[in-house]
Simulated scan of single mutants.
Amino acid sequence: MGVRKPTLRSVAEAAGVSTATVSYAFSRPDRVSAEARTRVLAVAGELGYAGPDAKGRSLRTGRTGAVGVIFTTGLTYAFTDPYVTAMLAGLAEALEPSRTSLMFIPFGEVSAGMAPDQVRRSVDAVHRAMIDGAVADGLDDDHPAVRVLAERGIPLVRSNETAAGPSVVIDDRQAGRDVGRHLAGLGHRDIVALVATPHEPGRVVEVTEQTPLFPYSRLRLTGLRESLPADTRLRVISGGSNSALAGQVAARAVLRGSERPTAIAADSDVLAAAVAGVARERGLWLGAGLSLTGFDDQPVAAELGLTTVRQPVHRKGFLMGRMLVDPDSERGRITLPTELVVRRSTGPAPSVRLGE
C-alpha cells in the first residue's frame, strides 16, 4: 500500500488548527498570527505538504493569481530587448503588492505566415493559460490571441493606439511627425525608415506590405510621411526581428553603394545602435556623413549620442499592470507623453548649410 499524500486537512489536524488557517498560512499570511503560521509551515514540512493545489484553488475562488503576457517575438525577447525588459519591470512593480504572478505566453508571429497547425497550437496555449488578466504589446483587435481572450472573458490591457478597450499608449503618429520635422529641418530629403518586420532584414517593404507591421510602426510611418516635404525620397526597409544582428544586416544593405540615404529613422534604439556600429565600420560620422534617429531612449541612446524619441516605458508597464489588479484606479485609455531628445547623431544633410 502506497503512502498517502498529505492534504490540507491532514496538515490542519496534525497542527491542531482549522483548514482555513492552513490555507491562509500559505496564501494569506496577513490573516494568521506569526506563531500559527510558523507551526503550520513546520508541520507541512514534516509531512511533505507543499501547499494548496493552485488549480483547485482557482476553481474554488475563480482566480488564479496570475497575469499573462502575450509574446509574438519569442520568449527570449523578454530577456534581451531593453524596451520589453523595462516594460516588464514596470508591470512587475504594479503586480508585486498583490502577490500576482507573471506568466509568459508565446504566440507565433501571424504575419510571418504561420502554418494552420502553428496557429492552432498558439491559440491552444492562450486557451489553456490559467490567468486572471493579460497584457499584450502591439497586437491588433483581430489578432487570434486577442479574440481568444475576449471569448474567455479575460481582461486585456494593450499598449497600442488601435486597441479597443483598456490601453496605455503614446501618440506614435505625433512622435513620427516630430522625427520627420527634425530631419526635414536639417535639409534631409533622402531618408530610410528602418522598422522591425517579419521579413528578412535589408529588404524594401513596399506600401502594400506595410499593413502587417506592428500598429506602432504603421503610425510612426504615417507621422513621418505627413511631416516630410513632397520632394523627399522615403524608403521603408526591414530591420528584421529588432535585434542587433538583424539590424547590422539591414544597415549594411542600406549603407552600401550609391543609394545610401542622408538619414535613417530607426524604429527602436536597438536598430539604431546596430546602424551606428556599421556606420563606424564604413567610416561615417553620425551627424555629419549620416544622420540617425532611434526610438525609446534606452541607456544605449545616451551612450551613442543618439537623437531619439523618449517614451516612459517603465511607467507604461506599471499602469498596464495597475489597470488589471485595480481596475477602479485606472480606466479606459491613458496617453503618456513623448519627447524628441536631440543629440549629436543628427546634423545638416551633406551639402546643406543651414541659415544660408
Rank of each mutant, 00 (worst) to 15 (best):
F295Y: 00
V207C: 08
D142I: 08
D140I: 11
S58L: 11
E356M: 14
T222N: 05
M103C: 12
A253P: 00
S291C: 04
K5H: 13
V84H: 07
D172T: 03
T335L: 01
R218F: 03
A115V: 14
V146N: 08
E109F: 08
V205A: 04
G355L: 14
P327G: 04
A276L: 05
G283Y: 02
S345H: 02
S58E: 11
Q311L: 03
E46L: 14
V69F: 06
R181P: 03
R28I: 10
V249E: 14
D132K: 05
P82S: 06
G289I: 06
V254K: 00
Y77G: 09
T211F: 12
I154G: 09
T38R: 15
P116S: 11
P155W: 06
L224I: 00
R57F: 11
V22P: 14
V254G: 01
I264T: 09
A279K: 02
S111P: 06
A25I: 14
R181I: 05
G138D: 05
A54I: 10
R220K: 02
A288E: 13
A112G: 13
L194Y: 01
G51T: 10
A265G: 07
G287D: 02
S167L: 02
V135L: 07
I70C: 08
P166N: 10
T64A: 15
S268G: 05
A302C: 02
Q311W: 01
M320G: 06
M87P: 00
T80Q: 09
M103F: 12
V342H: 06
S10N: 14
I70D: 08
V205I: 06
Q118C: 10
A184N: 07
G68W: 04
P106N: 09
G133W: 03
R39W: 10
R282D: 10
